[in-house]
């Protein structure tokens, strides 16, 4: 969605503009937040953070003088910043601050360990490509189950399948993925 499209919609109806922006970027924002908070937050905390981000964007995006191009960069920046703040709040709230987690969080994009970052990026790239090789619906199932921590019944509903089929496919796909990753020297 471009800023121009958003502003045009906003002039007609703010509500529709909010709805359209949300529909366009909710998966993206959720992915960013989940990625940052996965190990530290509950699903409710993650939802809280996602809604904060959209409220920030709805409130703060200047429709009068905004950039006319793609809004994804803006949305992504707000999301990442908010997610990192949320991570801090959650860590403070829980009373124990994991230095390791903190370190991980702030090492992203830093130049401190370029080699490690590069290795990690490559490993992730291989993992994603191997997951994609599983084909649909297995690639979606496996990410939803083992990364997004969704239950089989939730995945089943999303994909119009039976929960038992999801369980079976997930287990088989994970085995297959482990095998193919092992051949690439990666252990899950």
């Amino acid at each position: 969605m471009t800023g121009k499209e958003y502003c045009a919609l906003y002039k007609k109806s703010k509500d529709r503009a909010y709805d359209a922006l949300f529909e366009c970027y909710c998966d993206y924002v959720y992915a960013i937040v989940y990625n940052k908070l996965r190990s530290a937050a509950s699903r409710e905390d993650i939802e809280e953070c996602v809604s904060d981000i959209f409220a920030d964007i709805f409130f703060g995006y200047d429709t009068a003088s905004s950039f006319a191009g793609d809004m994804k960069g803006y949305v992504g920046t707000v999301a990442k910043r908010r997610a990192i703040n949320a991570f801090h709040s959650l860590a403070a709230r829980s009373g124990h601050f994991s230095e390791e987690a903190e370190e991980k969080l702030f090492n992203i994009g830093s130049d401190d360990d370029i080699e490690h970052d590069s290795d990690m990026a490559e490993t992730r790239s291989i993992l994603i490509s191997k997951i994609n090789e599983l084909g649909e619906p297995d690639s979606t199932i496996i990410l939803q189950k083992y990364y997004y921590d969704r239950s089989s019944s939730e995945i089943a509903e999303q994909l119009s399948m039976k929960a038992s089929a999801v369980r079976m496919r997930a287990a088989r796909a994970l085995d297959k993925l482990k095998t193919t990753l092992a051949s690439a020297g990666i252990t899950l």
Partner: peptide, 29 residues
């Protein structure tokens, strides 16, 4: 908080990986 630790390596991912992850439909209507 999460029990499934298989994909921890995807955490704090780079933008490209985030793009790919965001294509997985997770949120229900």
């Amino acid at each position: 908080m999460k029990e499934n630790r298989e994909f921890d390596m995807l955490e704090n991912a780079d933008d490209k990986t985030l793009e790919l992850l965001s294509e997985v439909p997770v949120l229900t209507k």
